[in-house]
């Protein structure tokens, strides 16, 4: 019975984290799948969301900025708003250039953010992070509090999914597809490409901030190196590519699937003797990376390919002639 209880709690935590990553992946899909933008600083926007809500909702303490003890909703909304503003500023500079530039700039943003977290210890408590973040339902008896939080996450996943699906099928979404497929003719048709891209970028970042906020409340703790930020960014990309880019269902599928794979491999390697167990983490990363390469080469559409009427694809080579 105890074992079953343990498995159930583990299952709930898997599903919860999977759900949080699903929100992240949906956000990335708006940027990549819809708009064709490469955001390599996911961890940064995620972190901004996490810290914003942490600072706003925690009790007063001398260790870091905060003490506002705001309700969760305020934390979430503030996280999204702040991220949106930062995304707007980053976008203003980089969106008119090629996707590589955006990738570099977003990695830069994530790094800067990490530096701020580490250096401005008066606000963030530096490397030690912000702890004792309130968690919805935490005063409920176990295991109901876990279930309730999971339900909250799943509801948010559902809401985000519905919103992005509606957006995808709307005229706005169709313009995005047109821009992604054949920018010159979209421009010729009078669409202000920059504005659309900005909208895609900002909305995507705001969704990521929401995921960050959820994570902060779930773990009740955030720090600058919560997960290796690079790894988190990488995992989300793998989730999207494997699941199916430009497909929202694929994004969710990829998130849960890869999270389960990632966690399952952790169980396997944790059974190894200590010496190997540490190093095993690197094998896991290597294998996930390999999986990504295989998908990029053989199944670039992912498990669930994008479903939409076939639009004549502009051949990459044709741009050069």
């Amino acid at each position: 019975m105890d074992a079953f209880y343990g498995y159930m709690l583990y299952g709930i935590s898997l599903a919860t984290m999977g759900g949080i990553y699903a929100v992240l992946t949906l956000g990335l899909n708006v940027q990549w799948g819809f708009t064709g933008l490469f955001n390599a600083g996911i961890a940064g926007f995620f972190g901004i969301g996490a810290y914003t809500t942490a600072i706003l909702t925690t009790a007063p303490t001398h260790r870091h900025l905060g003490g506002y003890e705001m309700p969760y909703v305020v934390g979430f909304l503030a996280a999204m708003l702040l991220c949106g503003i930062i995304a707007y500023l980053v976008g203003k500079v980089c969106l008119r250039l090629r996707s590589d530039y955006l990738a570099i700039a977003t990695i830069g943003i994530a790094e800067i953010f990490r530096l701020i977290l580490k250096n401005e210890t008066w606000a963030t408590n530096g490397p030690r992070g912000v702890s004792e973040i309130p968690k919805p339902f935490e005063h409920w008896p176990e295991p109901w509090n876990q279930f309730a939080f999971l339900a909250l996450v799943l509801v948010i996943v559902a809401i985000v999914y519905v919103l992005v699906e509606v957006a995808r099928k709307s005229p706005w979404g169709r313009v995005m597809t047109a821009i992604r497929e054949n920018e010159p003719s979209a421009k010729a048709a009078g669409k202000n490409v920059e504005v659309f891209r900005m909208e895609g970028f900002v909305i995507g970042c705001m969704i990521m901030a929401l995921a960050g906020a959820l994570m902060a409340h779930y773990l009740k703790f955030v720090d600058p190196n919560a997960t290796d930020p690079l790894l988190a960014t990488f995992l989300v990309w793998v989730m999207l590519i494997v699941g199916g880019s430009a497909n929202n269902k694929g994004a969710i599928l990829g998130a849960f699937l890869m999270w389960v794979v990632w966690s399952a491999t952790e169980i396997v390697t944790s059974r190894l003797p200590d010496e190997l167990a540490i190093r095993a983490a690197y094998i896991r990363i290597f294998l996930i990376g390999l999986m990504l390469q295989i998908f990029l080469q053989k199944f670039p559409q992912g498990i669930l390919p994008e479903k939409r009427p076939t639009v004549p694809k502009s051949n990459r080579n044709s741009e050069t002639v």
Binding site: F38, R98, L292, Q293, L296
Partner: peptide, 22 residues
């Protein structure tokens, strides 16, 4: 498309680093 190469290089960054760390 270019972005696939960038994603691939991102993956290779992590793969190579893992190999070194291992």
């Amino acid at each position: 498309p270019v972005v696939m190469l960038v994603v691939a290089s991102f993956g290779l960054m992590l793969m190579t680093r893992s190999v070194v760390q291992f």
